[in-house]
Computed example of a mutant assay.
Amino acid sequence: MHKIEDYNTLPILNIANYLNLFINTSNKTTCFLHKEKNPSLSFNTALNYWHCFGCGAGGTVIDLVIKYKGYSFIQACQWLDKNFAKFNNNDIQNKNRNIENKFNTSIEKKIYTNTNKKIYKWIINNLKLSDEAFKYLNKQRKLKTNIIEQLKIADIKQTDTFFKKAIERWGIKKLVNAGLIKIDRDNDRKKLRFIWRDNVIIFPFYDEQEEIVYLQARRISNLQPKYINLYNVQPQLYNLNILNRLKAGDRLCICEGVIDAITLYQYNYNSIGVPGVFNFNKNWIEKFIKYQIYIVPDNDIAGINFADGMNKLFMENGKLITLIKLPISRKDANDYFAHFSN
């Protein structure tokens, strides 16, 4: 038998392919744990994890085998051990890569590779922050008024009305390309729907050129998922423009989410946020090599996976990082600082 960590370092796409999961070119597939028409189960090859944005399931290679085959932990390890050499073979190819299935259309390829900065800027310029959204950010999450205003956080209450205005200004095709309209398929028919359908707070993401390159929404209600990313557009890093004021050797915190990054920022810690555990692109590593990196994960399983994955990525690039462990009673950085601000 191999060690547990050996099983979890097996290429996760190789395991998924062997389990006959039909993976598209964006490393996504329909989740086998619930019914759905569009793929919401995503594989992160950099961190070697899987996650379903529909039902929230996810985890390591072993977790995938347990969930898919209904095995116990020991049975899953035995199954992986039996086929270890085969699974570790990098020549295994995804037999579905060349299949033009319903998830691999020219439209989706275009959506995935394009963002529209002008649309994102227009959205932020045409929104304000309601009293309800401000109360949530200021009273519940303890974010300061000047920080909220500085970062141009806004919200949408009447989403249908706003999107009608957006369609009149930009047209459906551009909104689709910007990831603001999702294409659902019902048999051979296409249906268009807006990704934001209830009251959401909008966080603009700025790049190093101070341009808005991404938007993430956060529901004020308790509906799931709490955070809504743009559809088929590569997520970006939050607060990346902070790099403009840093010099080599400065400290930089990397958090799991937007609100944690804002919280650290308002307490004078240089910080950026990753919009979801599985959304860190290994090609971004070069941006951070010259800084002292501090990883600030949440106190949950996803946080452990995030910390392990980030440590692995930086170690592969010869960079040592520091892991910040929060008290077990605090679930994340925002919860930690909010607790002591009361």
Rank of each mutant, 00 (worst) to 15 (best):
M1S: 07
K3F: 13
E5F: 05
I12G: 09
L13C: 01
N27Y: 15
T30Y: 07
H34V: 07
E36W: 14
N38E: 15
S40P: 05
L41A: 11
N44Q: 09
W50F: 15
W50N: 04
G56E: 06
G58Y: 07
G59Y: 06
K69P: 11
Q78S: 10
Q78G: 05
Q78F: 06
W79C: 11
D81P: 08
N83K: 10
F87I: 06
F87L: 13
N96I: 02
N96D: 03
K102M: 15
I107M: 14
Y112Q: 03
K117F: 03
K118Q: 08
K121N: 11
W122E: 11
I123S: 10
N125P: 04
D131M: 07
E132M: 08
A133H: 03
K135M: 14
Y136R: 15
N138Q: 14
K144Q: 08
K144C: 05
T145G: 07
I148C: 06
I156R: 05
F162P: 05
F163M: 03
K165C: 12
I167D: 01
R169E: 11
I172S: 08
K173T: 12
G179N: 15
G179F: 14
G179E: 13
N187G: 13
D188K: 15
R189H: 08
L192D: 01
I195H: 09
N199V: 12
I201G: 05
I202A: 09
F203D: 00
P204C: 14
F205H: 14
E208D: 04
E211F: 03
Q216G: 07
R218H: 02
R219M: 01
S221N: 10
P225Y: 15
K226D: 06
Y227S: 13
N229D: 07
N239G: 03
K247I: 14
A248W: 01
G249D: 06
R251Q: 07
L252C: 03
E256W: 06
V258Q: 15
T263D: 04
L264G: 01
Y265I: 05
Y267P: 15
N268P: 07
N270W: 00
S271V: 01
I272T: 04
G273M: 06
G276I: 12
V277H: 02
F278Y: 10
F278N: 08
F280H: 03
F280N: 00
I285T: 14
I289V: 15
I289S: 08
K290L: 10
I293K: 00
V296I: 13
D298T: 10
A302R: 01
G303N: 07
N317C: 12
G318S: 09
I324G: 00
I328G: 02
R330I: 05
A338L: 12
H339W: 09
